[in-house]
Design a protein around this nucleic acid. Structure first.
Lengths: 339, 339
DNA sequence: CCACAAAATACAATCGATTGTATTTTTAAT
DNA sequence: ATTAAAAATACAATCGATTGTATTTTGTGG
């Protein structure tokens, strides 16, 4: 039960012609007569020939493949970005390899190694929460592999990014809570090494400032923003006897954790505490009360990032330029802030 | 800005030795002296050499890569299976390529083509809801590429499968509803071409039978089991004036749709209608009321399927055998059936 | 029917790494 | 010091497809 073994040489031998002609026929080159092409194509089908992409790619030094690295594929935001990526890449004849870092730097490094070794033509990436060291990214760039970040991008210069306006998102979320009468607004933040969390925090600060609400450092709680972090954050606030009537969480998951726990201890949402999340995960429509959140256009982000990457792949000269594209986000009001 | 161009020949030239020795040194062959190895390894690092996997794989006729095909990566069940796959594959030195069919046969075909062209060593797969024709699968098998199905497997003989006992799952779910006093139990089923849905239905029938509840065909509603299907199913039941006090849905998503709609029209769950889903998606803990469901051990399934696949990849002779491994599932009781 | 341009096909090198075999170098024993 | 055995390294073919160049075939005009 050996694998497929038919090569262009087998076809050539069977027809008593040269393998270069076979290759050209299979690639529909104008250098082969229609008649010969037909003969070859028929024979190829008859023999069950399948092109060996390893050989083809090696020779052509192109793989028509792009690598995608995300923290987790199960996160709806990322899977919708991937949808956008696949759609766009497919139309241009590119395959997509999806990889998840699971928020681990070690895995992220390993993935980039593998993608580079497999000679992908380019990489789209959203970095992990552990990524504070950028050597692996620099190395990829040095290898000349085009690279575009989306959403979570590193704090280094000369990168191509497709982002939403996180500052504005943070501002909108906070301003929304203020407009609902919240005076003491807590912010669940993520690792400050990630620009997105820094920017959301800046937006939060700006919104407070514009409403003349003093900024209080003890209202900022940083974590990995998992569901249990949301729970722990609330416990911490209570333990510290801090009064709060609003929460802006930098992602939905932590907000969900908070809602679950507040429900449990009979704190009324939104009356006692109003909550706004970030990303518009589907779960935010299902939780009770449903979660007000900032919607990120995942599909659009994927599409835009892929367009940008392909542009760099195709025009090697553009690799000297770098670009940051900002897409719009919007607030979706639901029950968790409806008061 | 050309890509990495250092080859073993460059290293060989730089050290004035033969490239075969370089290759052997890089692969830690015992045929090269320790001293020479060191010299080569240092030079390789110095020159920034990176092995070209395309060339290596072509020569070795192995890629150490397995392909994974799932309907959607965003479904928690599948992403937990993928976790199990990656974990296991990684330990054995295999890379994983993740692909999603999005429930489309056309995409599924295309994915298998691409995976085969890229010469993956084996494929793990859960088929789409549109897959009623198995030519593309047969072709993959004919090419001699080891193949293991998990969860959704095709109705053909001589396949390797890792499944849960869907019959028992269907039975347990239905029996649970009966034990809660339900007399008129509706079943939301999926495409009957998929054995899993057939088996869950059989389990449902058997449970009814054992409790002497007559089977009624109009209680079976087949669909793609999306959230909106759950809504439509309820509407259909009401339009047909059918009385029901229990629902066993063959997945959680359709059950969620039903719950949302029943909540909307003020039907009390579980008092008026008790509901059981299937798969234990995280969303089932968040919906109100929370959803009773059948838990599938995703991670375990992924691990087991990968073990089985690797066994076939490594021992070519086992490709004559086929095997079906059944893992256990269990019912998790929540509010939607708590009466 | 011959010459010559144009069209079609064949030849051979190449992509980068691997590996069986041949050759050279080293080691050890007499 | 000589030589056989063992160790280290070099040579060359190979994986399968692509592609620039060389050669053959076809077709046209005179």
């Amino acid at each position: 039960m050996k694998a497929n073994k038919v090569t262009i040489h087998d076809i050539a031998k069977a027809l008593d012609i040269n393998s270069s002609t076979v290759s050209r026929a299979l690639n529909d080159s104008p250098r082969v007569t229609k008649k010969t092409k037909e003969k070859i194509l028929n024979k190829a089908k008859e023999m069950g020939y399948k092109r060996n992409l390893l050989a083809s790619n090696l020779r052509k030094n192109v793989t028509n493949t792009i690598g995608v690295v995300v923290p987790r594929i199960s996160r709806h935001f990322f899977s919708s970005v991937i949808q956008g990526i696949e759609e766009t890449a497919y139309l241009e004849g590119y395959s997509v390899i999806i990889c998840q870092s699971l928020e681990q730097l070690k895995r992220e490094k390993n993935i980039l190694e593998t993608l580079a070794a497999n000679r992908v033509d380019g990489v789209l990436m959203s970095i992990s929460m552990e990524t504070t060291n950028y050597n692996h990214i620099q190395e990829l760039k040095q290898r000349g592999i085009p690279l575009v970040f989306f959403d979570r991008h590193p704090n280094i210069s000369k990168t191509n990014n497709v982002l939403i306006n996180d500052f504005k998102g943070g501002f909108d979320a906070t301003h929304h809570l203020i407009s609902k009468g919240c005076k003491n607004i807590v912010h669940f933040s993520g690792p400050q090494e990630l620009a997105i969390y820094k920017n959301r925090l800046q937006g939060y600060k700006q919104a407070l400032k514009e409403s003349n609400i003093p900024f209080r450092n003890e209202y900022i709680i940083s974590s990995r923003l998992m569901e249990h972090d949301g729970v722990n954050n609330i416990k911490e606030l209570i333990a510290k006897n801090l009064i709060f009537d609003g929460i802006f969480s930098a992602n939905d998951l932590a907000a969900i954790g908070a809602i679950k726990y507040l429900n449990e201890i009979k704190v009324n949402i939104p009356k006692d505490v109003a909550i706004v999340g970030f990303s518009n995960e589907p779960i935010s429509t299902v939780i009770n009360p449903s979660l007000t959140t900032i919607n990120q256009p995942g599909f659009e982000i994927g599409k835009t990032a892929t367009d940008l990457l392909l542009q760099h792949i195709k025009n090697q000269h553009t690799s000297l330029t770098t670009e940051t594209i900002i897409l719009e986000s919007n607030l979706i009001e639901r029950q968790s802030s409806n008061r």
